[in-house]
Nucleic acid binder design. Sequence first.
DNA 1: GTTTTTATTGACAGATCTGTCAATAAATGC
DNA 2: GCATTTATTGACAGATCTGTCAATAAAAAC
Lengths: 195, 195
Amino acid sequence: MAENEKQEMIIDAALEVFCDKGYANTRMADIARVAGVSYGLVYHYFGGKEVLFDVIVEGWWKDLYKMLEAEELSDVTVQQKLEHIIGFLLDRYQHSPNLVSIFITEVSRGSVYHTARGLARFNRYFDLTEKIMKDGQEKGFLRKDVPPHYLTYIFLGAIEVFLSVLVLGKESLTDHRRERTINGIIQVFVNGARA
Amino acid sequence: MAENEKQEMIIDAALEVFCDKGYANTRMADIARVAGVSYGLVYHYFGGKEVLFDVIVEGWWKDLYKMLEAEELSDVTVQQKLEHIIGFLLDRYQHSPNLVSIFITEVSRGSVYHTARGLARFNRYFDLTEKIMKDGQEKGFLRKDVPPHYLTYIFLGAIEVFLSVLVLGKESLTDHRRERTINGIIQVFVNGARA
DNA sequence: GTTTTTATTGACAGATCTGTCAATAAATGC
DNA sequence: GCATTTATTGACAGATCTGTCAATAAAAAC
C-alpha cells in the first residue's frame, strides 16, 4: 500500500484534511488540491472517501496491535509494559499528530465508527490490554478484587484523555513532558490518588 | 425552552436521530418524520440543524455544571463527591441514554465540537472537577505530588470509557452494576491498581 | 366579528458533493 | 516501433440536503 509517490501524497493530504475538518466535512476536492493531484486520481488509487479513510484507520490499528502483541510477549515487568503503552501512544502523537487526532476525534468515539467492524477493532484493542492486566493479576502485581476489564477501562481511559487534551490544544510534547505524563498516569493508576 | 408540546416532540426526535445516525448523517427530514410534524415546523421553532443540536448540548452542559457546582459546595468527603459525580453520569445514562450517547460520540470528541465555544464548555467541566481535586489535596486526602489536573484527567477519562462501553454496546444498567462500577472506579482511582 | 399574530404545511430553488467517464499522456511489454 | 496497459485530468450528471417561502389553518387580541 502506498509504494507510489502520488499515493503517499494523497494519504498525507487526507491525513491533514481529515484532521482539520473531520471526516464529514472533508471534501475529496480538498484532498486532491492539498495533495496537488487531480480530483480523478484520488478515485483512481483509492475507490472513494470511505476506502481512503479506512486505509488510514486500518494502518493505525495494525501498528497498535503489533505493539500490544509485542508487549504481551515481552520479558519485562507489567508496570514497564504499561509504561511502554503510554509511551508508544505519546510517541505516535509526536511523530504523526494528525493520525492521533483522527483516532481520538473520529475513530475512538465518532459515530463514523459505530459499525460491527469498528467495534471489533476496539474489542481487540481492549482485549490485548486486558491480557496484560490479567497477567499482572496472576503475577500478584495488580489487585484481583477488581475485574481486569475495569483495570483496562481505567488505564486506557486515562491515556485517551491525556491524548485528547494534546489534540484539542494542538500542543507539542517535549521529552520532559512525555516523561512526566507517563509517570503521572502510572503513579496514580498503580498506587492510587490517595495521599 | 420547549414548553410547547410539539417543540418537545421535535427535541425528542432530534435526540433519537442524532443518537442513531450521528450529527453529520442526521437529516432534518428524519427529525420531522420521527417527531410527526412537517419539515417546515422544525425550522419554525428552531432555526436549523446547528441550533437544534446546540439546544440539546447546552442543556447537557447546564445540568452537568449545576451538579458539579453543588458537589463543590456540598458538605461531604471528597471521596463521596467523586462517587456522586460517577453516580450522576450513570444515572443520566439510565434516564436518557440518547443524550449520554450524543455527549460521548459527538460532543466529547467529535470534530463537530472543535470550536472555541466547545472548548470553553470542556474547560469549565474540567475546571470544576479540578477544584474538587484541589480541595482533596488541601484536605490531605489526595496526594500532592501529582498535579490536580492530572488527577482530573485520569478520573474523568475513566468515567468516559465506562460510559462509552455502555453506549457502544447499548447496554442497560442495573442498580447492582451501577454500584459495582462506582466502587470499581473509586477503588482504583483512590487506592490504585496495585495488589 | 374582524384583525393580527402564531402554527403548520410541503414544494422548491440553490448549493453542495460524490463518483463516473471519456479523453489524453506516459509507460511498459513484445 | 506498435500495442497494451497504466497514470492523469477535469467536466459533468445524478443525487442529496438545507433553508426559504407562499399559502392555509388556528388562535389570540381587541
